[in-house]
Amino acid sequence: VKKMAKAIMADPNKADEVYKKWADKGYTLTQMSNFLKSKTAGKYDRVYNGYVIHLD
């Protein structure tokens, strides 16, 4: 998940494709939050927020 999150950060155009894969795998927002937690607070906030919007 972190590898794909980094791919989104490097190229935001990949976001919809990645979010669809995550949704197809049934990842919940709680799971995504836990996967994307980082020592650098807020590092993956943009990715998480994008997934929230995708699921909505």
Rank of each mutant, 00 (worst) to 15 (best):
L55R: 00
K2Q: 08
D16E: 13
I8K: 02
T28E: 03
E17I: 10
P12C: 09
N49V: 10
A15V: 04
T28N: 06
D24F: 07
A23T: 08
F35E: 06
A10K: 14
D45K: 06
N49K: 11
K2E: 06
G26P: 03
I53P: 02
Y51M: 02
D45Y: 07
W22Q: 00
Y44I: 02
I53Y: 09
L55N: 03
S33H: 13
A5Q: 03
K43S: 06
K14A: 10
V1L: 08
Y19N: 00
D45T: 06
D45W: 10
D24E: 14
Y19T: 01
V18C: 07
G50Q: 05
D16G: 11
T28M: 00
T40H: 15
A41I: 13
R46D: 15
I8F: 01
V18K: 02
Y48A: 02
K21C: 14
K39G: 13
K37V: 10
T30R: 10
S38W: 06
L55G: 01
V1W: 04
D16P: 14
V47M: 03
W22K: 00
V52W: 08
A41D: 13
K37G: 08
D16K: 11
L29I: 10
M9A: 04
I8W: 00
V18N: 04
S33A: 15
M4L: 11
Y44H: 01
G50F: 07
M32P: 00
D45S: 06
Y44S: 02
K14P: 02
Q31I: 09
L55W: 06
G42C: 07
I53M: 13
I8H: 01
K21V: 13
D24S: 11
S38G: 07
N34W: 11
T40A: 10
T40W: 09
Y51Q: 01
H54N: 01
A10N: 11
K20E: 08
K25W: 15
V47G: 00
G26V: 01
V47Y: 07
G50V: 07
T28C: 05
N13V: 09
Y44G: 03
A41R: 11
E17V: 08
S38D: 13
L29A: 13
G42N: 09
I53F: 09
A5C: 06
K2V: 09
V47A: 05
D24A: 13
K20G: 08
G42S: 05
W22F: 03
S38A: 06
K6N: 13
S33F: 14
A23G: 05
A23V: 10
E17H: 07
N13P: 05
A23N: 06
K43Y: 12
S38H: 08
K21P: 00
T40G: 08
Y19K: 01
G42P: 04
K43H: 06
N49I: 12
D56P: 01
A15W: 06
D45N: 07
N13Y: 11
D24W: 06
K25E: 14
W22E: 00
P12S: 08
L29F: 05
M4H: 07
P12F: 10
K39Y: 08
A5S: 03
A23S: 12
N34M: 12
I53W: 09
L29M: 07
L55A: 02
L29E: 06
Y27Q: 01
S38N: 05
A5N: 03
G50S: 02
T40F: 10
Y27S: 01
A15C: 07
K2W: 02
A41S: 12
V52R: 14
Y19D: 00
I8N: 01
A7D: 10
S33T: 10
Q31K: 05
N49G: 08
G50M: 08
D11C: 12
V1Q: 02
V52E: 10
K25Y: 12
K2N: 02
Y48N: 01
K14N: 09
D56S: 15
L36V: 00
K3E: 13
A23E: 08
V47I: 12
K21M: 15
E17Q: 09
H54W: 15
L55T: 04
K6I: 10
P12T: 05
S38E: 06
M9Y: 05
W22I: 01
K25G: 07
N13W: 12
Q31D: 14
L55K: 00
L36S: 00
D45H: 05
M32T: 02
D56G: 15
K21A: 15
K14T: 09
D11T: 05
G26W: 03
K2G: 02
E17N: 08
T40S: 10
A15Q: 08
P12Q: 08
Y48T: 03
A7I: 13
F35H: 06
G50W: 07
S38V: 06
D45M: 06
M32F: 04
V47W: 04
W22T: 01
Y19P: 00
K43Q: 11
A5P: 00
L36A: 00
L55M: 08
A15M: 06
D24G: 08
V52S: 10
W22C: 04
A41L: 11
V52Y: 06
G26N: 06
K37C: 13
T28A: 01
D24P: 00
Y19S: 02
M4P: 03
Y19V: 01
Y44P: 00
A10E: 12
V18D: 02
T40M: 10
A5G: 03
K6W: 09
Y27C: 05
Y51W: 03
D11A: 06
N13I: 09
K25T: 11
N34T: 10
I8S: 02
G42E: 06
Y51K: 00
N34R: 13
D16Y: 13
H54C: 05
T28Y: 02
A5V: 04
Y51D: 01
Q31V: 07
V1K: 03
V52I: 09
D11V: 04
A15I: 04
K25P: 03
L29W: 04
Q31W: 06
M4Y: 06
T30G: 12
V47L: 03
N13K: 12
H54D: 02
K3H: 09
A41V: 11
L36D: 03
G50I: 05
M9F: 07
M4I: 05
P12N: 06
Y44L: 04
